[in-house]
Nucleic acid binder design. Structure first.
Lengths: 206, 206
DNA sequence: AGATTAATAAACACAGTGTTAATTATTTTG
DNA sequence: CAAAATAATTAACACTGTGTTTATTAATCT
C-alpha cells in the first residue's frame, strides 16, 4: 500500500522475494516452489521470509491481490455504456474501452501475469479474473437487453464470451503481443459481435 | 491397459488410490495432497503406493494420460467434414459431431474432470485438452478455408474459439449439466456460427 | 549519533518423502 | 486343493523442508 513510508530494507526484501517468486514459478511451477528455494535464490535468510509472509500461499495471495485490485479499479473507472453508445461502437468497429484497458494492463504486467496464468501457475487466479470480467459484462448485458428472454441460455453465453476473452488475451500475451492493446481488443470485439466464423470470412456455400 | 489380466489386488489398490485422489484434490487441492493423505484415506500402506506410482505427480500424469488418450481416440474416430457437409450442418443448425462426443465423454467422466479442470486442479491439463481441440479444428478450418487470407489473425481466432468451447463445456459441467450433450453442443455451435452477440438476440439499434 | 527496527544465524520439534528388508496375506496356477 | 508366485504390510532409515524462537548483527530513520 504505502510504499512511500516503507523502510528501505523491507521494500528491498519484498521486491527481491516477489521477483524470485515469479522466476521460480516459471521455472518449476508454483507447487514445486519452496520457501527455501525462494530465500536461497533471493539471497536472504529463511527467517526473513517469515517476517513478511506466513508461507508461500500467503505470498501468492498477496501477489494476486495486488493485481485483482488494479483490474477492479480499471473496471470501476469505466462508465457503463448506454445502448446508444454501444450501437456507435458497433457501427464504428470500436472495441470496448474496458478490454483495451485490460490488454494494456496485461501488457504492463506481463511477467507475473504470464507465469501465474500459465500452465505452472494458479488456476484459481484465472477464475478471479473471470469473475471481474463477468461483473463488467453482466452490467452491459443488462443495460442493453434488459431482463428479456434470450435465444441461448444467458449463463452459457456468459461462460462462452468470458472464456473467449481471457483465452484470447492470454494467447496474445504468450505469443509476444504482436498487436497493440487497441488492435487485439478490436479483433476480440469483431470475433464477438460478428461471430468468430463470420469474422474470419466464412461465406455460406450454396 | 490390460485390466483383464491384472491381479485383483493390483486393480483394487489402484482404483482405491485413484478414487481417493480425486476426492482429495476436490477437498484440499492437488498441491496440498500428500502421499500420506492418499494412503491414509485409502486405507493402504504408504509403501504400497510406491509400488504403483513414483510420487503424486506420477499418479496425476497417469490419471490424465487415460483421459487424454480417450479424447484423442474420439477426435480420430470422427471423419473430417467436407465443405458441403459443414454447409449442411450450418443450414440444419446441427452441431459438430466431435463437440457432441466430447460433451458426452465429459458427462460420463464428470467426477475426475470437474476436479482436475477446476480451480484446485491442474492448469496444464486444460492446455492438453486445448491442444487436442486445436488439432481437430485446424483440420476443419483448412478443409473449409484452404490457406487463404483471413480477416482476423488465425491464431487469435483459434485461441478465441478453443477457449470459448472449453470454457462453455466446463461451465456446463460445473452447473449440473442442465442440457443434454446434443443441446449444449448446439448452443456452442450457434454461439460460434452466428456469433455470441447475434446468437443471444442482439439487434442493431437505429 | 543514538534509537529503532530489520535481517541474520543457529537451533528446535515436527511433517512428509522415498527407499529398503523381512514378514504376512492373497491370488493364481498346475 | 496345494504349492508357487506375487502383492501388501510393517518398521526402520536418512533426508528435505516447515514454521518458530532467541540472541546477535547491521541498516535505516529521526
Amino acid at each position: 500500500m504505502d510504499q512511500e513510508k516503507m523502510d528501505r530494507r523491507i521494500a528491498k526484501t519484498r521486491i527481491a522475494i516477489k521477483n524470485v517468486f515469479t522466476e521460480l514459478i516459471d521455472e518449476i511451477g508454483f507447487d514445486a516452489v519452496t520457501v527455501k528455494n525462494i530465500t536461497d535464490k533471493a539471497n536472504i535468510n529463511r527467517s526473513t521470509f517469515y517476517l513478511h509472509y506466513r508461507d508461500k500461499y500467503d505470498l501468492l495471495e498477496k501477489s494476486e491481490e495486488e493485481i485483482i485490485q488494479k483490474i477492479e479499479e480499471i473496471s470501476k473507472s469505466i462508465r457503463r455504456l448506454t445502448p446508444k453508445e454501444l450501437n456507435n461502437l458497433y457501427s464504428d468497429n470500436k472495441p470496448f474501452p474496458f478490454v483495451i484497458k485490460l490488454a494494456e494492463y496485461f501488457r504492463d504486467n506481463a511477467a507475473f501475469l504470464k507465469v501465474i496464468l500459465g500452465p505452472k501457475g494458479d488456476l484459481s487466479f484465472q477464475e478471479k479474473i473471470k469473475t471481474i470480467l463477468e461483473k463488467n459484462i453482466v452490467e452491459n448485458v443488462r443495460a442493453i437487453f434488459g431482463e428479456g428472454t434470450f435465444h441461448v441460455p444467458i449463463d452459457v453465453f456468459m461462460a462462452y464470451i468470458i472464456s473467449a476473452h481471457v483465452g484470447s488475451i492470454l494467447h496474445w500475451l504468450n505469443t509476444g503481443m504482436k498487436q497493440s492493446p487497441e488492435e487485439i481488443a478490436t479483433i476480440i470485439f469483431n470475433l464477438t459481435f460478428q461471430g468468430p466464423v463470420n469474422a474470419i470470412g466464412f461465406k455460406k456455400f450454396q
